[in-house]
Computed example of a mutant assay.
Amino acid sequence: MDITIYHNARCGTSRNTLAAIRGAGHEPQVVDYLAHPPSREQLREMIAAAGLGVRDAIRGKEAVYAELGLDGVDDEALLDAMVAHPILINRPFVVTPKGVRLCRPFERVHEIL
């Protein structure tokens, strides 16, 4: 199965999701999204495919969120901020032929394996 995980090795949820994928017998493509963030359009598509709103996919507790004054801005401004500052992208997103999930909690990955 073709699986991609947008991964942050410093995040416990992301590490647990990766371990669950491997535990199910799959070796995913691991994308360090902080170093190689998805494009704006890829991000928009993943969020929509996961059934989320853009605000659901942003890490509102990151310091840069407050620094940029992102409360109350529209989805386009949020997407711009997420591409410019990938630490704002909630994690981990997992993409499989069966769908896309923001795997918080990590067990959500089982829905698409």
Score class of each variant (00 low, 15 high):
Leu102Cys: 00
Ile3Arg: 15
Ile5Leu: 13
Thr17Ser: 03
Thr4Phe: 13
Leu79Ile: 14
Ala57Leu: 02
His26Thr: 04
Arg59Asn: 00
Pro28Lys: 00
Gly23Met: 01
Lys98Gly: 13
Gln29Gly: 04
Ala49Met: 08
Arg10Ala: 15
Met1Ile: 09
Val64Ile: 09
Leu79His: 13
Pro97Asn: 01
Asp32Ile: 01
Gly60Pro: 02
Asn16Arg: 15
Leu34Asp: 03
Gly60Cys: 11
Leu102Tyr: 04
Val95Thr: 02
Leu79Arg: 13
Arg44Ile: 02
Ile87Leu: 14
Tyr33Trp: 11
Leu52Tyr: 13
Leu52Ala: 06
Gly53Asp: 12
Val94Tyr: 05
Tyr33Cys: 08
Gly69Thr: 01
Thr96Asn: 03
Ile112His: 13
Val64Phe: 02
Val95Pro: 03
Gly25His: 12
His85Gln: 07
Arg44Val: 05
Pro86Glu: 04
Ala50Asp: 15
Ile47Gln: 00
Val83Asn: 10
Glu27Lys: 09
Glu62Lys: 04
Val94Thr: 08
Gly69Tyr: 03
Pro38Asp: 12
Ala63Cys: 14
Val73Asp: 03
Gly51His: 12
Cys103Thr: 06
Ile5Asp: 11
Pro28His: 00
Ala84Arg: 06
Val100Cys: 05
Arg44Glu: 07
Leu18Asn: 02
Arg108Leu: 15
Leu88Lys: 07
Lys98Ala: 14
Leu68Ile: 00
Gly99Tyr: 00
Leu70Glu: 03
Arg91Ser: 10
Ile112Ser: 12
Leu52Pro: 08
Glu45Trp: 02
Tyr33Pro: 07
Pro105Gly: 07
Val95Cys: 06
Pro37Trp: 09
Pro105Phe: 12
Pro37Glu: 11
Ala81Gly: 06
Gln42Cys: 05
Tyr6Asn: 09
Gln29Ser: 13
Phe93Val: 03
Arg44Met: 06
Val31Lys: 06
Arg55Gly: 04
Arg91Ile: 02
Gly53Trp: 11
Val94Trp: 10
